[in-house]
């Protein structure tokens, strides 16, 4: 955990936990634009053949999520299965406005051979730069990179070539660290009994 942060000198407690927007704007965009990423933490696994459980140590793993760059491809087949698109697409909106900066696609891992594979809880978020925004985006992305982006923008890099991926194993009762446990929720609702009549 955190081993990949070797070039990031942060005190304990900092974790790679990028928002969708950060993945697109800070990482994918810079990758596509051939800009240096700092910190350069996300590895490029190209057209990786790895099963999701093999990603540990290869992709950037943090908090049971794994991040990597990959080439865009239509069928992601691994040694033991395949990623099947859910058919769901979501727009990734930039924080600074309502501008769409990218697209997020959902895929689910199936063990076995398509189309008769066995569905698993492994989920993949595949982030694409949105075609329309790719050029516009390069001039309006994060302020620190916009100047250099502009210079390189005329190169008209192939925005469709790269994606950045987030892989994790879905866990139904995992609500995130900042949430209350079920037990806490029970205690909380028991507190409501106090509110009915509390003389003191």
């Amino acid at each position: 955990m955190g081993d990949h942060n070797n070039n990031v000198n942060l005190p304990p407690g900092f974790r790679f936990c990028p928002t969708d927007e950060e993945l697109v704007v800070h990482f994918l965009h810079r990758k596509v634009a051939l800009l240096p990423c700092h910190p350069d933490v996300i590895p490029d696994l190209d057209l990786y053949p790895y099963d999701p459980w093999e990603l540990d140590g290869k992709a950037l793993g943090e908090d049971n999520k794994w991040y990597f760059y990959s080439r865009k491809t239509q069928n992601r087949v691994t040694s033991n299965g395949y990623w099947k698109p859910l058919g769901v697409e979501e727009a990734v909106i930039g924080r600074s406005g309502n501008k769409k900066v990218g697209t997020k696609k959902y895929l689910v891992f199936y063990v076995g051979e398509a189309p008769s594979g066995l569905k698993t809880n492994w989920t993949l978020h595949e982030f694409h730069l949105s075609d329309s925004s790719s050029t516009a985006n390069s001039s309006t992305s994060s302020s620190s990179s916009s100047r250099s982006s502009k210079r390189r923008a005329p190169k008209k890099t192939d925005t469709s070539k790269w994606v950045v991926c987030r892989v994790y194993e879905r866990d139904e009762d995992d609500d995130g660290a900042a949430e209350l446990s079920c037990l806490d929720e029970v205690f909380l609702s028991l507190d409501d009994l106090d509110e009915i009549s509390l003389p003191n």
Binding site: N5, V8, N9, L10, P11, P12, G13, F14, R15, F16, C17, P18, E22, L23, H26, F27, H38, P39, V41, D63, S142, A177
Partner: peptide
Amino acid sequence: SISVNGQSQVPPGFRFHPTEEELLQYY
């Protein structure tokens, strides 16, 4: 990673998500 004007500078993608252990044992 040094804080400037009370604004901590953290590289993109990183969040302060300490474990309970880190909170107690380190901080």
